[in-house]
Computed example of a mutant assay.
Amino acid sequence: MKYIDVAVGVILRDNQAFVCLRASDKHQGGKWEFPGGKVEPGESPELALGRELQEEVAIVTTQCDSLILIEHDYGDKCVRLHVYTVTGFDGEPTGAEGQSGKWLALDNLNYDDFPAANREIIDALMAQQAKTTS
C-alpha cells in the first residue's frame, strides 16, 4: 500500500488553533483542516511543514514540535500525517491561497467539521492540553 506523506501544522496561540477550509472540489472538500501539504520526494516532513505553511498561510515557523504520526486509509487513498504543533511563527496566519481561515478555540474543535484522519489530531491536542493545564 502506498501512502501519501503529508506534513500538518497545528498552529497554536492563546488556546486557539488556526484552521483552513478545504476547497469544495478537493478530496474531503468543505471540511476544516489544519494547514499543511504533501512532503516532496527527498524532503523531510519538517522542511515540508515550513514550506507548506509559508505557501498556504503566509507564516514562517520558528518553533514546532512533533505531536503525532497518523496513518489513515480513506478507501480511495492512504495518507501518513506527520503532525506538528507550531507555537512560534513570524507573520499572521491567513488563507494565502484564497481559502478561508480562522482561529478556533480548542474547545470548539468538532470531529464532524474535519476529515476523519484529523480526529486523532484533535484527540492528541486535547490530551496535550490536559497535561499542560493540570
Rank of each mutant, 00 (worst) to 15 (best):
P93F: 14
W103M: 11
K77R: 15
T132A: 15
G101Y: 03
D14S: 13
E92S: 13
V39A: 02
F114K: 00
E40K: 13
A130G: 00
V57K: 04
M126F: 13
D25A: 11
G91K: 02
D76T: 01
P93A: 08
A124L: 05
D113I: 00
G37N: 00
A23K: 14
H82I: 09
E92N: 10
Q54D: 03
Y84A: 12
E40G: 02
L109T: 00
L67Y: 05
K77I: 15
F34R: 02
E97Q: 09
E46H: 03
C78V: 13
L67E: 04
L69E: 15
V86H: 06
L81T: 08
L12D: 04
R119I: 01
K31P: 03
R51C: 00
T85A: 08
E52H: 02
L49G: 06
Y3N: 07
E55F: 11
L12N: 02
L21H: 08
A117Q: 09
D107E: 13
G75F: 10
K102M: 13
N110V: 14
Q28S: 11
E40M: 11
Q54E: 12
T133P: 05
S44P: 03
C78H: 07
L69S: 14
C20Y: 15
P35N: 01
P41S: 08
D107C: 07
Q99K: 15
S134V: 02
D112C: 07
S134L: 10
R51W: 01
V19Q: 06
H27W: 09
I68L: 12
H72S: 07
A58T: 08
W32S: 02
I4T: 14
N108L: 12
Q54G: 13
Q128E: 11
L12P: 01
D14R: 10
L69H: 15
T61K: 00
Q54R: 15
V83P: 08
G37P: 00
V79Y: 11
E33L: 09
R22N: 13
D107I: 10
H27Y: 10
R22H: 11
F34I: 05
S24H: 15
S66F: 15
I70C: 07
L109M: 03
E97Y: 02
R22S: 09
I4G: 04
Y111R: 13
H27A: 14
H27M: 10
A116W: 02
P93K: 03
H82R: 05
M1P: 05
G95P: 12
N15L: 08
A7Y: 08
S134C: 07
F89T: 05
E40I: 01
Q99M: 15
R80Q: 06
A48L: 00
P93M: 09
T133F: 11
A105P: 14
T87G: 09
V19D: 07
